[in-house]
Simulated scan of single mutants.
Amino acid sequence: MALLPSMPTMDPGSFVLIRLLSAILMLALLMTIRPKKTASVTKGSWLASFWLFVYALSFAYAYQHLDAGSGALVLFGCVQIVMFFAARYQGVETHLIAVLGVLLAMAGLFYLMWPLLSTPSIVGVVLMAVSGAAWALYTLAGRASKDPLADTSYNFLRTLPLCVLLFAYLMIKQQLWLSSAGVLLAVASGALASGIGYAIWYSALRGLNGVQAGSLQLLVPALASLGGILFASDSFSWRLVVSTLITLTGIALVLKKSN
C-alpha cells in the first residue's frame, strides 16, 4: 500500500496510469525471469483488479483535498473497519484483547500523524474512505492466493481496460499534465512499491486472518517515516519511536489473541 500523496508535478489521473502501467511491466518481467518450472496455478480475478483500480484512483484524487496526516488516518481507519467486520462475517473469533490491540495500534498511528492533521475536506474524506475500503477488499481477495506473483501480475494486467477508459476521460477533459520528476516518481511507485510490493503482500497474507492482516498495515506510516530518515534526510523524531512502539504493542496483541 502506498502512503505518499500524488505529487503536484503531475495530475492524479496520469500518476495512476503510469503507476499501474509500470507495475504491469515490472510484474511481466518478473513472471518472465522466474523459473520455468514454476507453473501459475492461479491468475487473480477481475473483481480483485477492479478493487485495485478503485483503490489507486480514489487514493490519488483524495490527496488533492487532504494532507498526509488526515489522509493516513482515514485510509487506515477504513481498512481496519472493513477487514474487521469481514473477518467477523467469515466467522473469525476475535478476543477482546485483540480488539484493544487494534485500537492501541490505531492510537499509535494517530499519535504519529497528530502534527500533520488539519480540518479535512469532505470530498477528500469520502474519496479516501473509498480507497481504504477498496484496498481492504483487494487484500481479502488475496488471502487464498496460491501463487502471489501470478495473481498480482494478472490483477494488474486486468486493470488495462479501466486504464484505457481513464486515459480517454483525461484526454477529453484535457487534464493530462506531466513533468519528468512526476513521471519518475510514478514509475518508481508502480514498479517497486506497487508491482513488487503487492506481490510480497499477497505472499505474506497466507496464514493471516483479516484482523491480523489489517493490523499489520498500521506499520506502513511508521516504516515510511523511517525510510524518510534513512534515505531522504528527514530529521529524527522521538514521536516516531514512541508511536512505533505503541503500534507494535497493539499489533503484538492482535497477532497473539486473534485466530
Rank of each mutant, 00 (worst) to 15 (best):
M1S: 15
P5E: 12
S6E: 06
S6D: 05
T9V: 05
D11N: 03
D11M: 01
D11K: 00
P12V: 00
G13Q: 01
G13W: 01
F15D: 03
V16K: 01
I18W: 02
I24P: 01
L25Y: 05
L27N: 05
M31W: 04
I33S: 00
K36T: 06
K36F: 04
A39W: 02
S40D: 15
K43E: 08
W46M: 08
L52V: 10
L52Q: 10
A56R: 01
A56W: 00
L57C: 04
Y61P: 03
A62L: 01
D67Y: 08
A68I: 08
A72Q: 07
G77Q: 04
G77T: 03
G77P: 00
V79W: 06
Q80R: 05
Q80F: 02
M83N: 00
F84I: 12
F85S: 09
Y89C: 10
Q90W: 08
V92R: 13
H95Y: 04
L96E: 10
L100E: 10
L100S: 12
L104G: 05
L104M: 11
G108E: 10
G108S: 12
L109A: 09
L109D: 07
M113Q: 13
L116Q: 15
S121V: 09
S121R: 09
I122K: 06
V123T: 14
V125N: 08
V125Y: 09
L127H: 01
S131Y: 02
W135V: 15
W135M: 15
L137D: 10
Y138A: 07
S145W: 04
L149F: 11
L149S: 13
D151H: 08
S153K: 02
F156C: 06
L157Q: 11
T159S: 13
T159Y: 11
L162R: 02
L162P: 04
L162A: 02
C163E: 13
V164K: 02
L165E: 03
M171N: 10
Q174P: 05
W177A: 09
W177T: 13
L178Y: 05
S180K: 15
A181S: 15
G182M: 04
V183Q: 03
A188I: 07
S189C: 14
S194W: 01
G197R: 07
I200R: 09
I200M: 14
W201F: 12
Y202T: 03
Y202L: 12
Y202E: 10
A204S: 13
L205V: 03
G207H: 01
G210T: 14
A213C: 01
G214S: 12
L216Y: 00
Q217V: 14
Q217L: 13
A222F: 12
L223I: 13
L223P: 03
S225Y: 13
S225P: 13
G228T: 08
L230W: 14
L230I: 15
S237Q: 12
W238N: 11
W238T: 00
W238H: 08
R239M: 13
L240E: 08
V241K: 07
L248I: 15
T249I: 14
T249K: 10
G250P: 01
I251P: 02
K256I: 00
K257S: 12
K257F: 15
S258G: 02
S258L: 06
S258A: 09
N259L: 09
